[in-house]
Simulated assay, not measured.
Amino acid sequence: DALARAQEVSKDDNATAEEVKTATDALNAAMKAKDTQDASDKKTASLDALKAAQAQGNAIDEDGYTPNSYAPLKDALTAAQNIIDNPEDHTQAEIDEATTAIQDALDQLSDRADKAELDAAIKEAEGLDLDETDAEDKAVIDALARAQEVSKDDNATAEEVKTATDALNAAMKA
């Protein structure tokens, strides 16, 4: 509306200085209001995206992932909550960075390894009568020690668990 009025005044050769100033001021005020509203709308959309990412992160079951891979997500969720609680204290860039941090942390989650087979092999090996002076028994003792370390490691990968399980089973078979 302000643009249309300014264009009318601009085309009117009989427009007074007062009319030109009024039309110019009205157009500048309207453009400034539009910029402010656009920025507010963009920040609101970013805040909504952050809330959605936070909801996705909060839906993750911590017990299903290694502690080392879950820690960055926990930190990102804490930072997001701070922003959500005080959005006026944060820029749009900070909001966008917090959203990205949650998404990156979600992408980096590592599944907690299933240790059922490993623990079964450990239990079996612990039930054996082993003599450290016998080479084959010593191999079982060494594989058992490594398997116990892996079993206790909450951050052990599935590959580490499989390797330890296979090594212990092979030692017991030998």
Rank of each mutant, 00 (worst) to 15 (best):
D89M: 12
A55Y: 07
D166F: 11
S69H: 04
A145S: 14
N155T: 06
L47E: 09
T133P: 01
V161N: 02
A158F: 03
D61S: 08
D107T: 07
D166R: 02
L144Y: 06
A55M: 10
A59V: 01
V161R: 00
D96Y: 03
A120Q: 11
D25W: 09
G127M: 14
A39V: 05
S40G: 04
A171Y: 03
D25M: 06
I122N: 03
K34H: 11
D38R: 12
L144S: 03
Q92F: 02
Q103R: 09
D41K: 08
D12H: 09
A33C: 04
A30S: 15
A156M: 08
D35C: 06
I60M: 14
L73C: 02
T100L: 09
Q7G: 02
L106D: 09
A17C: 04
T100K: 05
V9R: 13
N28F: 11
M31F: 15
A143M: 11
A23I: 08
P67T: 07
A55H: 06
A116T: 14
D89K: 09
T165I: 10
A125G: 08
G64V: 03
D1A: 15
A79E: 10
K115G: 05
K32S: 07
I84L: 06
V20H: 01
L77E: 03
D12W: 10
A125H: 02
N155L: 07
N82M: 12
